[in-house]
Design a protein around this nucleic acid. Structure first.
Lengths: 190, 190
DNA sequence: ACCTGAACACCGTTCAAGT
DNA sequence: ACCTGAACACCGTTCAAGT
């Protein structure tokens, strides 16, 4: 059989994301992806050293997409709190839309700090910090607030993705509410 | 070879927790557990229908242990905020101590609401709600605050377990800080 | 009731060999 | 440079058979 692809890597990633969304991480295997693409089971190894490398690439893609959505959501005009709220909603909706992808993105344990996934994740954090420019808050206050808000949003996102929120609670409401309470409780621009 | 165990189930769980703590979820296999315990590879199936059933049992154990620690941490005297803070610290420290177990506990996607894992998880939530007795807050306010706080703590715990907090941030400080800000921002006992 | 042993279908990973 | 095919060691799961 002739060579099948010039862009096997991209096709593997695309197919992997579909499988991930439809059947979860557990259903992702290099062999089945190769089968789906009509390629030998060993072909993926040329593009991904191992299964983890594929998951890492998916995580990077995920952070890049999340970052793009966050950047867009905060690009409009509006007050500081409004922009924070938009960012929060965007984050939480991403988790609703791609729960399995979010899981892969944050299953990045014991990775060295130089990692690509970590860098992609940090870029998302930067977008939040940028919102504080001209807010009147000191850099230290902004960074502290940023970590706390990010952790809180991640909690809502993770519980949403795991379908572990009490019935009747909307992730959107929770996110906006959390932003409001943290803001009021932080005396940021005092 | 004679029968090896009368309590194979308990030994499997114990060994599984060790493996989980040392090498992560990925290293957990029914076959290797059986090997470690000197039992045939099919023996575990008598006690756990499949691999997921073992993970579920670990998750239930985890929630029970967490619940016991939370209950103990809030049993002392002290003001409302102090007790909330102790609960928060206990939660977050659990995540530091058993990161892989926490991951298993919250990897409970797409489970029916009757599930044992969900029940064990809900019991932990109850402990938080009990703290509001006599706090002056309405039940609705308490439940809302409880969900928000739990999500925020879970976020800190998850990022801690994934080692994804910015360097220099202590999970303890973050948890206590979050409790304070949420409390101040919530006008609970107004 | 509880465990064994063989069997089946699936993995990840490696590597010589093809084009 | 990129892919194939065979090979190896590992899985989960099932099931007849043993005690």
């Amino acid at each position: 059989m002739a060579y099948h692809h010039g862009n096997l890597r991209a096709e593997l990633l695309a197919r992997a994301e579909t499988v991930l969304a439809e059947d979860g991480v557990g259903a992702l295997s290099l062999r089945s992806l190769a089968r789906d693409l009509g390629v030998s089971h060993a072909a993926p190894s040329r593009h991904f050293a191992d299964r983890q490398a594929l998951l890492d690439a998916l995580a990077v893609e995920g952070f890049e997409r999340l970052g793009a959505e966050l950047a867009e959501s905060t690009s409009g005009d509006g007050g500081f709190e409004d922009r924070l709220t938009w960012l929060a909603l965007t984050y939480v909706r991403f988790a609703t839309r791609y729960p399995a992808l979010l899981e892969v993105m944050y299953a990045c344990k014991y990775r060295d700090p130089q990692d690509k996934v970590r860098a992609a994740s940090a870029a998302c954090g930067e977008i939040l910090l940028d919102l504080f420019d001209g807010s009147g808050a000191s850099v230290a206050d902004a960074e502290r607030f940023g970590v706390i808000l990010l952790a809180a949003l991640h909690g809502i996102a993770a519980l949403t993705a795991a379908d572990s929120l009490p019935p009747g609670s909307s992730a959107d409401d929770l996110a906006a509410d959390t932003v409001g309470r943290l803001l009021r409780g932080s005396r940021l621009t005092g």
